[in-house]
């Protein structure tokens, strides 16, 4: 091989290796067909463009211009009657045939639907996913939940789940005092638990203060008198009476499912609904992860 071509290919090679290194650092799976085809495409571009250009530049070094000149000249510019370069001409013919074949037979006009392909892919994937992870261990769920959380929830709740200075619920803690007070004042009708909405005004003044303090502290110590009202629905221990009302003591899977389905409007602001965005396993995973964020335990 001659010098120019080698230099061209070295340039192409360096570029490709650089991409490979960076992509590998991001843990990209190159055996995935789309990734692989893309990568091969990048190689083809770099190698062919620099290689072929270098080949012709090499000809500048070694060949001489020959051929029969046409009669015309324009402002002193002449023109040879040289034939087409054979490689170019045959490639043109070949590619045109390929195009006709591809369009008419290879991928016939109406035989392909991108949405159809998508639907099949997702269906197959989901079935496999649910089957595989139906009985996933809490550790697996937690890991899975973390990655979903970082993609979908972190923009509001922050990467650590701390709610970013009160922009969303601080998930390192089940519930804050002002949130409880707000619910006592305004009632709550976000989640559609079996018991329905919670009416406003169940505790007022000092009672409200006391009960809010108690709930916000994780229901530790002695319950204030007014707690009795609450216990009717939320259970004596505040864990929600087996799913009749929200668990006030700690995050649980029911609460996460309800909030993801219905969203929430509260004193902090609004949480959008994520209905139909996650599979049951993914919701369980999120719950498992959120439980580990908070120090409040059942």
């Amino acid at each position: 091989m001659n010098g120019m071509v080698v230099k061209g290919l070295v340039l192409a090679g360096v570029l490709i290796v650089a991409i490979l290194v960076v992509v590998k650092q991001m843990h990209i799976d190159l055996s995935d067909p789309v990734n692989m085809i893309t990568f091969l495409g990048a190689i083809a571009i770099a190698v062919l463009a620099f290689g072929v250009a270098a080949k012709y530049m090499q000809q500048m070094k070694t060949d001489t211009a020959t051929g029969e000149l046409a009669e015309d000249t324009w402002d002193g510019i002449g023109e040879y009657k040289n034939d087409l370069p054979a490689g170019w001409a045959w490639s043109f013919v070949g590619v045109s045939i390929w195009a006709g074949w591809y369009f008419l037979f290879g991928y016939p006009l109406n035989a392909y639907s991108q949405i159809g392909e998508y639907n099949e892919e997702v269906k197959a994937y989901n079935a496999k996913f649910e089957a595989k992870h139906k009985n996933a261990s809490p550790e697996v769920l937690k890991e899975m939940g973390e990655s979903i959380f970082l993609v979908q929830c972190a923009p509001c709740h922050g990467e650590t789940g701390d709610g970013m200075d009160g922009k969303a619920h601080d998930l390192t803690h089940r519930i804050a005092k002002e949130q409880v007070l707000y619910v006592l004042k305004n009632g709550s009708h976000n989640f559609k638990y079996p018991l329905g909405a919670m009416p406003a005004g169940l505790a007022q003044g000092k009672d409200a203060e006391a009960v809010a303090e108690y709930v916000a502290n994780g229901l530790k110590g002695k319950a204030p008198a007014a707690w009795a009202t609450c216990a009717g629905c939320h259970g004596q221990d505040g864990t929600g009476n087996g799913g009749q009302a929200p668990n006030l003591k700690a995050f649980d899977a029911t609460l996460i499912h309800q909030v993801l389905t219905h969203g929430k409007k509260g004193v902090i602001g609004q949480m959008p609904s994520f209905v139909n965005r996650f599979t049951p396993v993914q919701e369980k995973a999120l719950a498992e992860y959120i439980k580990t964020l908070s120090s409040d335990k059942e």
């Binding site: 992509v23 991001m26 990048a42 993609v151």
Partner: peptide
Amino acid sequence: ITQGMMWRAVDEYGNL
């Protein structure tokens, strides 16, 4: 290329 591949990268559970 990195960005494009990262957008579609999934973990072992199939999540982004």
